[in-house]
Design a protein around this nucleic acid. Structure first.
Length: 732
DNA sequence: ATCACAATACTTTTT
DNA sequence: GTATTGTGAT
């Protein structure tokens, strides 16, 4: 089989383009990934390019894995190249960078044992620095300082170059300087440093630069519109003169501006490589024409953009289904109903369905609906595993063992579980360490080794004993880890730690939650076990760089729950987008920034274009924002939907105006609100036309109506508005 | 130093 | 409604 078979003329042109800079601009569903993988297979198979000289950068590790298996399939007909894919470098910018840094650590101000600080580690460093500088976290939120530092790093601005152009920036600059030093003494890099350090490495070390340029002669980049400055410069440094660089992207799908991504890198690419061939992929292979028409209706309202026609020969397909639910619980139930209906009609397996939302917080209600009805689901991302306290604790222990300089991990585990080392003792330890010119963990190890004489009298008897005890354990674990490296058993190491600190009794309090936590610990244990051959080093890197997005399991036949952001690059036969309310889509945080608002529109566009066969849009009339429930306005994007594309609760799309009307009228009714008296009380038996019989759990006056919470025998807990629900009271 | 409970801020989006 | 921080009693 020829691997060029089945490509359309545009795709064929892209795959076989002569070496040199190539820019592929392509709409959604146009086979971007296909073109990229075919190009790689073509290079190996037809152009005899050694696979190890190919570097392919993607957006997630999952995408990289998928890319590898696709190339493998393409090369199957070519036995000579059977093992070629294993020699290629594929991964995210960050994983590629981490490997390069590890390899070239000699010329960098860190050692090979460096650890990678994640978001929460970074924030805790910033918080600690701000506390030391006596900056009031209420006036200057640490989050904003951290994000300013991160943005600067993505723009390759180091602390000395950071402008002190305002009071806030002056503060950031001062924190940034100390932050940089803190990371260095901790022998740690954060996410942004991984890119920054590689750029510095390649800029400042000609020999290294030339080595990599010779090595990676062919570079391919997916999702190019979401590269940031650091990544763009990194690519430039890697390619040098006369590069064979092949980038694929779609400016309409740029959704990571807030993290430094700049779709103008596409324009920059054309300027920097004037000889670059630009190839357009126009035909859509994914969606039905109705879905594409909706996508165009939405994205064409995006200002300052070239219109693209999205077309397919798949036919019109089904209409877009729209529904307005009463509240988010109702919305969640509707999701289940739709999935059931499609399943019963034989249109789709649960597997084919994806539920997408703007914020992770929205997943909870939907999860609850699934759990309540005992249905399986797959949740992508969001603190599912690696963000968990118990997992972070255990990783912190491992990081400390691997790299005792890591102060963030030390602070995390020093008194977890509590062992009599309080704030005061910690402060003393750090100042003793500083005076002695040793790291805090170094002091502990000295104490444990009995060479702590020079700290004599620094600690109280009790504190000293507690610290020495911890030092002994740390020393023992380090010896064990060195041994484990030889005997390859990380599970054993973890067992030792867990039993030494009594972690199970600390985390598992017998409650269901406690057992869950302990199970997470065991899961990490078995994951570590698998990494025994590769070593602690690689395990820690894996844990830092893998994201929960990458752990999507394909095994069970269940719908996928994910954010619109994580949906990028994926496709599903059935897509259900929930929460089409103003404030969610578009998100309220973007309201005051026009650029951010454009990005919200693109994000909605990305969501729509994930759908192959059917698209279902949902919103709810009421939504709980933070504690209290209130009336939500329909998304402004609903106004852009041509009504002839929609079926279902079509009038719901018009409710934006109606809502305004409702608000005005309810204003008139407001004076009566206090006079309303609850008609229902806890314990009353009631009957509802659709939901059947149930028991009132509670009832309260909300705005101008009565909200009754009822547990129905067959339909679970619902919150209903008395005047609309038509409830009938039953006597026992 | 530690625990329990209360008050408080807080939620975009993620490598 | 929840994660984090603050307070007061032991």
């Amino acid at each position: 089989m020829n691997l060029l078979d089945g490509l359309n003329p545009q795709q064929h042109q892209a795959v076989t383009a002569s070496p040199g800079p190539v820019l592929v601009l392509a709409g959604p569903g146009s086979g971007k990934t296909r073109v990229l993988t075919h190009r790689m297979a073509y290079q190996i198979s037809n152009q005899n390019i050694p696979p190890q000289n190919i570097l392919a950068v993607t957006f997630t590790n999952k995408a990289a894995r998928e890319m590898r298996s696709r190339v493998e399939v393409l090369l199957e007909g070519d036995p000579a190249q059977a093992s070629a894919t294993t020699q290629m470098t594929m991964g995210t910018f960050h994983s590629v960078a981490a490997r390069m840094i590890r390899r070239e650590a000699d010329v960098l101000p860190i050692t090979r044992e460096f650890v990678i600080f994640d978001d929460s580690d970074q924030l805790s460093v910033v918080k600690r620095i701000m506390k030391d500088l006596n900056i009031d976290p209420k006036q200057i939120p640490p989050r904003r300082v951290h994000s300013a530092i991160s943005t600067a790093k993505n723009e390759l601005i180091v602390s000395q170059e950071f402008p002190s152009s305002s009071y806030f920036n002056e503060i950031v600059k001062r924190v940034y300087e100390i932050y940089e030093r803190q990371l260095l003494v901790s022998n740690a890099l954060d996410f942004d440093d991984l890119l920054l350090f590689v750029v510095r490495l390649l800029r400042e070390h000609e020999a290294v630069r030339n080595t990599y340029r010779r090595y990676y002669q062919h570079i391919l980049v997916d999702e190019f519109q979401d590269t940031n400055t650091a990544q763009y410069v990194l690519l430039q440094l890697l390619t040098g003169e006369g590069p064979d660089i092949f980038v694929v992207g779609d400016p309409d799908q740029s959704i990571y501006r807030w993290r430094g991504a700049d779709y103008r890198n596409v324009l920059r690419f054309q300027e920097d490589y004037p000889k670059a061939q630009t190839i357009l992929l126009e035909k859509n292979y994914r969606s039905t024409q109705n879905i594409l028409n909706l996508a165009m209706a939405i994205i064409d309202k995006h200002p300052g953009r070239q219109r693209k026609k999205l077309f397919t020969d798949r036919g019109e397909g089904e209409l877009i289904h729209f529904h307005e639910a009463y509240d988010e619980a109702d919305e969640a139930n509707y999701v289940l109903e739709m999935i059931d209906r499609l399943n019963n009609e034989g249109q789709a397996e649960p597997n084919d369905c994806a539920v997408m939302y703007r914020t992770n917080a929205q997943s909870r209600v939907i999860e609850e609906a699934f759990l309540r009805t005992g249905r399986p689901y797959r949740l992508v991302g969001a603190q599912r595993f690696y963000g968990r306290r118990e997992v972070k604790d255990l990783i912190a222990y491992l990081r400390l063992i691997h790299n005792p300089e890591d102060q963030v991990s030390l602070l995390r585990v020093l008194n977890t579980p509590s062992r009599g080392i309080g704030d005061k003792t910690v402060a003393t330890l750090f100042s003793v360490a500083e005076n002695a010119g040793v790291s805090p963990a170094g002091v502990l190890l000295d104490q444990a080794a009995g060479s702590g004489m020079r700290y004599e009298g620094a600690f109280s008897k009790r504190a000293g004993a507690a610290l020495t005890e911890f030092g002994r354990m740390l020393k023992k674990w380090r010896e064990k880890a060195a041994e484990a490296a030889a005997e390859a058993d990380l599970g054993d190491l973890i067992d030792t730690i867990l039993s030494d600190v009594g972690y199970q009794t600390y985390i598992d309090d017998g409650t269901e939650e406690g057992q869950d936590r302990w199970e997470n610990v065991l899961e990490l244990h078995s994951l570590a076990q698998e990494f025994s051959d590769l070593g602690l080093n690689i395990f820690l890197e894996h844990v830092a760089l893998i994201s929960d997005q990458d752990t999507l399991t394909e095994s069970q036949n269940a719908p996928t729950l994910l954010t619109l952001h994580t949906a990028k690059g994926l496709e599903f036969p059935i897509v259900i987008i929930v929460g089409l309310d103003d404030g969610l889509i578009p998100h309220q945080r973007s309201f005051d920034d026009p650029e951010a608002m454009h990005e919200e529109r693109r994000l909605f566009y990305v969501g729509i274009t994930r759908a192959k066969d059917r698209l279902i849009l949902l919103r709810s009339f009421r939504r709980r924002s933070f504690g209290t429930s209130s009336v939500a306005e329909p998304s402004r994007y609903l106004e852009d939907i041509p009504l002839d594309l929609v079926e279902g609760d079509v009038t719901g799309i018009l409710t934006r105006e109606q809502t305004v009307f409702r608000k005005q009228t309810s204003w008139d009714w407001q004076p009566h609100a206090e006079e309303l008296v609850a008609q229902f009380g806890a314990g009353m038996r009631v009957k509802h036309a659709a939901f059947g019989e149930g028991i009132v759990m509670s009832s309260k006056i909300e705005q101008d109506d009565e909200e009754v919470t009822i547990e129905f025998e067959e339909h679970g807990v619902k919150i209903l508005v008395a005047s609309l629900a038509g409830l009938e009271t039953l006597d026992d």
